[in-house]
Amino acid sequence: MADTMIQFQDVSRMYHPDIVGVTNVNLRIRPGEFVSIVGQSGTGKTTLVKLLIAEERPDRGRIEIGGWDVTRIKGKDIPLLRRQMGVVFQDFKLLPQKTIYENVAFALEVSGASMKRIRTVVPQVLKIVGLEEKAQRYPVQLSGGEKQRAAIARALVHRPKIFVADEPTGNLDSINTREIIDLLVKINQFGTTVLLVTHNREVVNTLRRRVVTLDAGQVVSDQEVGKYLL
């Protein structure tokens, strides 16, 4: 279907016969949507993200991304899938011995981009996140919010159709949180589908976008203009 970006059909992932990752998840996300995924700790939010980027495989069900069935994706196709998606996590995952510029460039280098492309794209994405002035600094020389912005810049280098943020503000204070969320909204306004996993009630409530609530691995509520329920 043309107006479906992400589709989960009866997806289950058990880590163990008695450890539920997610069960029976049905979810359809349209292109350009901004979806928040909320739920208590250990309810399967990160598992959902891992299934999406093919780091975990579902035991049952079917996952489609942009019409591409990635349920049983081949190992060699995973890099192609990941270049369609930008992903950031709570812990930034920046390389400490590289500058911000080098960290962002690294994502392009390892996928075989030309020097020319790297020289054009890296300043562009650094500008989007407002770090062009601090490109030559090392991660330790940045604040938490700046580090997360650097991670977002890196996630943008492949111009992803889908942007996934797993608790991107988990380590940040409210001002930095606000900045990061504004940035995600800006990315969404470019037309990118955004998935935001968060614990932050205020963020969800002020966003006034679709909210999917998970509990014990199941989707327990899915509201078009959601509130943080729990």
Partner: peptide
């Protein structure tokens, strides 16, 4: 391991890793 994790995350091909 950190670097490899990031390479995988940003879509580096297996042979590159």
């Amino acid at each position: 391991r950190e670097e490899i994790g990031i390479m995988r995350l940003v879509g580096a091909s297996a042979w590159f890793i």
